[in-house]
């Protein structure tokens, strides 16, 4: 067994194990940390395949940005763990049945019609640069879907802001502009204390 295939099995095994721990860990913070580990191993697999750009992007975007955000959210939410786990055993038989059914169906598909006629990828030339290849494809052949995907992200931003940004009249936010524009007459009232009021 070559070193590459040994590495492949090690990374895959750790990936599968950490993926399993993501869904079985009792504490959501641990679950997110296991997910980080899963991402790292997936990135390593990408590197083994020679897709260094995808591997680095996976770490930069998912581990660096998405998962950190995830961890923050998980830590900020006050999740009642006991209540979350209440239904687990209750739903287990149904979930297991669905999972087994799915696996059997997939097995049936591959048993009756193996996808053998898909040609294996050819040998990679030594000077292959997949960052360049990806970029060329994205901005030429896949330009149209690439732009549409960008529009979808724009929609996500607009929708998220439109749904969450609301002016609540009773909230105690400070309006800096109004604070600075305040006049003396609004804040200060001169009262003459020497003369008793009638």
């Amino acid at each position: 067994m070559s070193v590459t295939s040994l590495l492949f099995y090690v990374f895959s095994a750790v990936l599968l194990l950490s993926a399993l721990l993501v869904i079985t860990a009792r504490n959501p913070v641990y679950a997110s940390l296991y997910l980080v580990l899963a991402f790292f191993n997936a990135a390593a697999l990408f590197l083994l395949l020679g897709a260094e750009f995808l591997g680095l992007i996976l770490i930069l975007v998912y581990v660096g940005a998405v998962m950190v955000l995830f961890l923050f959210v998980v830590m900020m939410l006050d999740i009642n763990l006991a209540r979350l786990q209440e239904g687990f055993l209750h739903y287990l038989p149904l979930g297991l049945a669905v999972a087994i059914l799915g696996v059997l169906e997939l097995a049936a598909v591959f048993w009756t019609a193996p996808l053998g006629h898909i040609p294996a990828p050819g040998a990679v030339p030594a000077d292959a640069d997949n960052t360049r290849a990806l970029g060329e494809l994205l901005y030429t052949h896949y330009l149209y879907p690439f732009e549409i995907a960008a529009v979808i992200l724009l929609i996500a931003i607009i929708a998220a802001i439109a749904l969450t940004l609301r002016r609540r009249p009773q909230s105690k936010t400070q309006d800096i502009g109004r604070q600075l524009a305040v006049k003396v007459s609004e804040r200060l009232r001169l009262v003459d204390l020497r003369r008793p009021r009638p």
Partner: peptide
């Protein structure tokens, strides 16, 4: 004319609709 564009178009439409329905919070 491509499964990718069809799917992306569908998601664009669907996402806008989800937000439109939820706008009356």
């Amino acid at each position: 004319g491509n499964l990718l564009t069809l799917y992306l178009g569908l998601e664009l439409l669907a996402l806008s609709q989800y937000a439109l329905v939820a706008l009356q919070r």
